[in-house]
Amino acid sequence: MDQIFIYTGLLLIILMVLSLYRALFGPTVLDRLIGANAIGSKTVVLLILIGLIYHRVDMFVDIALAYALLNFIAVLAASRYFQKKRGLYDELH
């Protein structure tokens, strides 16, 4: 069963690299934000897989919960920030 978890984790990492393309070369800032959000939601699953591989899942599940919270807050804060910055430019012109 450990083998299966390791291969699942490797596949998840490949998918994260695919999403990283959008996060690095996205044409707008919001495209990058989508890429970051997708990477974060895969990281939550990957953390629990790591916990199952090392047989310490009771510790890693708390980290995964905190990471899910943090991902949500980060995306919300970043989207609010870029919205405000645009308004600032409008006032200057």
């Binding site: 919001l30 934000l33 989508i34 959000n37 939601s41 939550v44 629990i48 599940v61 708390d62 995964a64 919960l65 899910a68 919270l69 949500f72 995306v75 919300l76 989207s79 609010r80 870029f82 919205q83 645009r86 308004g87």
Partner: peptide
């Protein structure tokens, strides 16, 4: 706790998407 994470993801994901869409609409 894993089920709680699932519930939280189901609550928070639409809100995050809505935040990004709102930023896109306001940026024109």
């Amino acid at each position: 706790k894993l089920i709680v994470i699932v519930v939280f993801v189901f609550l928070s994901s639409p809100t995050a998407i809505h935040g990004i869409v709102d930023a896109g609409v306001r940026a024109g």
